[in-house]
Design a protein around this nucleic acid. Structure first.
Lengths: 154, 154
DNA sequence: CCATTCTTTATAAAAATTGTCAAGATAGTT
DNA sequence: AACTATCTTGACAATTTTTATAAAGAATGG
């Protein structure tokens, strides 16, 4: 039972924007540096997030990605579903994926268990918002690393 | 977030013995046929289950695998942990796996979320026993397919 | 016009999963 | 003792998924 790297990175990226840039937007370059994630790989993940409408983007100098909703309106579950394509523990319980219907559907007791597990997982992930993560980070004393664009050099 | 095939097959195999053979033991050949799982692959999974002590084995004609505990004493969580090697959603929260320590451990807010999710999943899987599955199967009207060894040919 | 940044698509490397093969050990049967 | 059915073990191969990397393109701001 494992969460994909894209999901973990996706949640961290969204959190990073919310925490370090205060919703103003951040560049892939900086997020990459702060989170230690390959820039190219991060770009792929952001495309998914952008198409899903969870972030917006702006090209050119001083461009970047920004949250299109407030941190308290974005849940961890939402980000995971976008980057991972569902939180179901097994494919046969995913109603969307009719391409691979389980042969023993209807006579499969374990399916009921996987289904319930997926439901519980979804419920939990949906109960955690990005704002919650920011609050946690603050309590842990994580330093905010504001973007250099907002700094004045004396 | 997906459960590995070995875990799913493992749970189904244990359930199969409990349901169809009533704890008397069953052969890989029959379990393979009933569950539609490759015989060779199933053998691999049974080795894990045997080493973990959840099933016993007997070689030779009329040999096979049998549960070494009662169905109500075996939980789905137990089987999954054996076949999957832990239910933690991400590696960095697994205390055993110190080989890949997360660089930002201690300063990682998402880790807290993954940890809690894993805990909840474990709790749920531990709350479901093999006997529960058998009861479910009975309620669903699943036919029992007793081993031919116990049949009389007239 | 130019540098910077996102966009898109293709592709490659790595890892994990899934499955197969084959030789051997053990137990029961004849 | 010979024979057969079954588990045992380790090696290995195929497939899929994950995790990236590369490169050409488009938009933006200065």
């Amino acid at each position: 039972m494992r969460l994909s790297t894209q999901s973990r990175y996706g949640v961290r990226a969204i959190f990073d924007i919310a925490y370090h840039s205060g919703g103003l937007g951040a560049q892939v370059k900086d997020i990459s540096r702060r989170q230690g994630i390959s820039q190219r790989y991060l770009e792929q993940i952001f495309q998914k997030l952008r198409r899903a409408g969870i972030v917006g983007s702006k090209r050119g100098p001083s461009g970047g990605y920004f949250l299109s909703k407030k941190p308290e309106q974005i849940t961890v579950g939402e980000v995971i579903r976008i980057t991972e394509g569902g939180i179901n523990p097994v494919l046969c319980v995913n109603p969307d994926d009719s391409a691979k219907p389980c042969a023993r559907s209807g006579g499969c007791v374990t399916q009921i268990v996987w289904n319930e597990a997926g439901k519980r997982l979804n419920d939990y992930f949906d109960s955690v918002t990005i704002k919650d993560l920011c609050q946690l980070a603050k309590e842990m004393g994580m330093k905010k690393d504001f973007d250099k664009r907002f700094m004045y050099y004396i």
